[in-house]
Design a protein around this nucleic acid. Structure first.
Lengths: 335, 335
DNA sequence: CTGAAAGCGCTTACAG
DNA sequence: CTGAAAGCGCTTACAG
């Protein structure tokens, strides 16, 4: 069943059928009605390969996710899909390893599938700097800032990680903690980790809390098992810690389990703070004290920027989205 | 940059370039070398729209996921992607609402994107029965059995939910529990819930444990907040319960939090058992006693069946994948 | 308002 | 082993 069959069955030419299918204005109501009747009756769906070949583009939007089991990104994906569906846009999601090269993948996607636009959930600025320029369609990076790169078709929205980390340290300092460990900070999203680390460092300096990066920080990937192992390493090296700041809720949950298995209760024996504000962290025992990233706003502003970029070639925007420090049950007040 | 440019630059015809690009055997080594050199030099990538238009198909595999924040499916997606990548197949993931019509969506996908094959993560057999027949490409349904439908191009792999539920009840019975509530069982995956419910019912009958479905079961969707609310409803209706069997780990975690907020500790005051064997449930406090679905095997057998279906049009297979009852810390022994 | 025709970038019989 | 040409199913100037 092709557009030719519809033309034959309706008694019109293929050009007219195409116009009806694409809602062009210059078709008479009568014609539109009769063509649509046949389309309906036959359950006809145009072949998008032909359509896109002709239009030199595909209609869909790609979402490239760095890391498969990342719950923050799962949340964002859900919201993006809902918003795009409302805007009648189709979205396909592509998962990459946490350490993969998302820019190289995007380039391949552009050649093979010709999306209209791309969302990057997570991204390494160095990879963008090195390889993004051949990509000419509108793109949006979420959870990192691409302002410094200055690409004309790349917007970005992120939480102010540095400020959030500072607030966490202030909270901990206010509760009397002076021995704080930092958990997490993998290579792949190094800028993000770096901003959070810098926030910690600045706040510690300001509050006169000692903070030896080499000793008090333990990197790990975004997973509970890795955080579990890293927590043991960190605590064996720094048994004096009274608080651990994990750079994601998933890591915080892994840390809490590790601490329990080491005979320590949270928050009675040691304090844990997370980051992200995942649903899981608000239903755990104890509920996490954490930084909630506003995923709804990240998604909304991202979709808005991407669609504007596609429709009107609007210039890129780079914005910080407000965060919120949520006080759960995982922080103890030291006397 | 098109195949024509490559032909011009290399001094050959487009047909020869196409043959080189597609690894056809009847090209001389010399020609292949020279054409590839130009392709390399220009960084040429063929236009897949044109290729697929001509070939009447796309090369990629679609993964349709029912429910966005479903962690079991996230695990399966990750494994499927890894296996498909090893097989040099490309995969795009499409998320649908837990209550959406995945068969209608698949049909649209077939028309618009012409995938070579489709994975369904979760699926309602009634929707398949009603609408699957126009789909002619190989498909695989995971976490439900499609044997009874008898479609020639639809394989399925699932855990034996009935047997697993029976084992859970046996475990609970063996620990002295005689007042057991069942949490979960939404409309969308009704067959799955139904099989688990039937397993409970059978085991209860066999062990002479009373089980009033209308009273002791509380449905809810696959989410912590919904499970949280449903747990309160269930316990207010049945305050005599000593154990709750949640049909997913996510629900079990929501239930544990709800119970704690009602002043009950797990497992000291009430027992909770989950289902799925998610990583999250093995790092929670307490660790969940649960049924581990073998996601690696589900993924491996699924990929195997789909690729065989694509390559050799192999007949469909329907298999049960073994499960494992994991004893965590969430079940109490009643005296 | 409508239709015949060109062309998007490929693949593949067909002929040599 | 190689090339000229037809055709995949659409869209869109162009002409009427």
């Amino acid at each position: 069943m092709t557009i030719k069959d519809i033309a034959r069955l309706s008694g019109y030419g293929v050009a007219t059928v195409s116009r009806v299918l694409n809602d062009h204005p210059d078709v008479s109501d009568e014609t539109r009605r009769r063509v649509l009747a046949v389309v309906e009756e036959q359950g006809f769906q145009p072949n998008n390969n032909a359509k896109h070949l002709k239009q030199q583009s595909s209609t869909s939007i790609a979402i490239i996710v760095k890391g498969t089991m990342n719950l923050l990104f799962a949340d964002l994906v859900e919201r993006l899909q809902a918003l795009l569906r409302d805007a009648e846009e189709d979205a396909a999601v592509y998962y990459l390893d946490e350490d993969a090269n998302e820019v190289a993948y995007a380039l391949q996607l552009c050649r093979e599938r010709r999306p209209m636009g791309i969302f990057f959930l997570g991204g390494d600025l160095e990879l963008f700097r090195a390889g993004f320029s051949p990509i000419t369609i509108p793109c949006v990076l979420l959870t990192n800032s691409a302002r410094e790169l200055g690409f004309g078709n790349l917007s970005s929205f992120t939480t102010d990680d540095g400020a959030a980390a500072e607030q966490v340290i202030e909270l901990l300092g206010g509760h009397g903690h002076r021995h704080i460990g930092l958990l997490g900070g993998n290579w792949s999203c190094s800028q993000i980790s770096f901003r959070r680390l810098t926030g910690c460092r600045n706040a510690c300096a300001r509050l006169d809390i000692p903070f030896d990066v080499d000793r008090q920080c333990e990197p790990c990937r975004y997973s509970m098992p890795e955080a579990y192992a890293a927590t043991r390493v960190l605590l064996e090296r720094c048994p004096e810690l009274t608080a651990i700041f994990a750079v994601s809720d998933v890591m915080a949950l892994g840390a809490i389990r590790a601490l329990r298995d080491m005979g320590k209760r949270v928050p009675e024996d040691i304090t844990v703070v997370g980051y992200d504000g995942l649903v899981s962290g608000q239903y755990s025992l104890p509920r996490l004290t954490t930084v909630r990233q506003d995923t709804q706003q990240l998604a909304e502003r991202g979709v808005d920027a991407l669609l504007r970029g596609i429709a009107r070639n609007s210039p890129p925007v780079h914005e910080l989205v407000p965060f919120q420090l949520i006080e759960g049950e995982s922080v103890a007040q030291l006397s």
